Amino acid sequence: MNPPAQSRVRVLLVEDDLRVARVNRDLLERDPDVHVVGSAATCAQGDALAQALQPDLILLDVHLPDGSGLGLLRHWRTQGRTTDVALITAADDEASVRLALAHGAFDYLIKPFTGARLNDLLARHRARRLGAAAGRARLDQGRLDRLLGVGHPAPVPLPRGIDPHTLERVAGALHATPVPVTAEEVGELVGLSRVTAWRYLEHLVRSGQAVLEHQYGHAGRPVKLYRVAGPGEAHQSE
């Protein structure tokens, strides 16, 4: 089964150091659902490729031969381009970071960065797209905070056998579903077996991100249903 469209990410790299661009491409494409569709070494090339390729995500350097990536980001926002743009740069001064965020960068990575931090960037980008794809005209504060990445604790090491990319897909499917769902239904949404989806859902319950409910009134064992945990809800377990 093909992965959901929100899991597939088309990336444009704007980086003048060809060696760094190659390393970043290799890191990104370790994820089979990520494809680097273009690479630019200047602001002019980056602008042209952004228009021609319409990528989902742009990874942008600050110091480029013909100008500043921050200026290019400002140009895109002025033109109404809302593509997710993350700065990946050696520019570590506070002024550059503040300016990037003021111009609508959704993330900022200072070189050198870890593969885990890059994976976190991709997971946040996917979560933002999943929230947009849900098509809700109005958001409550909890959903908006999840979309913005606000209020989440620092990530902790995952248990053995829990893949962060798969976990992000399962959590995203749960957030996008307005009613409690079974492990089988989540598995169908993200292309996993029922047992694998159940294992990830149980991890979300143990970590306080999801709530397990039992639906009674049917013959045999009660049906297990999962939903996103609301603010202040206690962990629920077997």
Score class of each variant (00 low, 15 high):
Arg169Glu: 03
Gly80Ile: 07
Glu94Gly: 14
Arg81Asn: 08
Val156Gln: 15
Tyr200Val: 03
Ala116Glu: 13
Arg74Ala: 13
Val150Ile: 13
Ser96Tyr: 07
Val228Phe: 05
Arg126Cys: 05
Gly217Phe: 02
Gly131Phe: 07
Cys43Asp: 02
Gly220Glu: 06
Asp17Ile: 03
Val36Asp: 02
Gln209Lys: 15
Arg129Val: 01
Ala5Gly: 11
His75Glu: 08
Ala133Ser: 14
Glu213Met: 11
Arg128Ile: 08
Leu147Ala: 15
Arg128Thr: 08
Asp56Phe: 07
Asp56Asn: 14
Glu15Ser: 11
Thr114Phe: 07
Arg199Tyr: 04
Asp163Val: 08
Leu148Arg: 15
Val9Leu: 13
Phe106Arg: 09
Val97Thr: 09
Ala197Ile: 00
Ser39Tyr: 00
Asn24Pro: 00
Ala52His: 11
Leu144Arg: 13
Gly80Asp: 05
Asp93Leu: 11
Ala137Ser: 13
Ala86Trp: 01
Pro32Met: 05
Ser237Arg: 15
His75Trp: 08
Asp107Asn: 11
Gln215Gly: 10
Ala41Asp: 01
His203Asp: 04
Asp140Asn: 15
Ala176Arg: 15
Val181Phe: 07
Gly67Gln: 04
Leu99Cys: 07
Arg8Lys: 11
His214Lys: 14
Tyr108Trp: 02
Val179Ile: 14
Leu27His: 13
Val11Pro: 05
Val36Thr: 03
Arg227Asn: 04
Gly67Val: 09
His103Tyr: 11
Thr177Ser: 14
Asp26Ala: 15
Ala44Asp: 09
Thr196His: 04
Ser96Pro: 09
Val186Ser: 07
Arg30Cys: 05
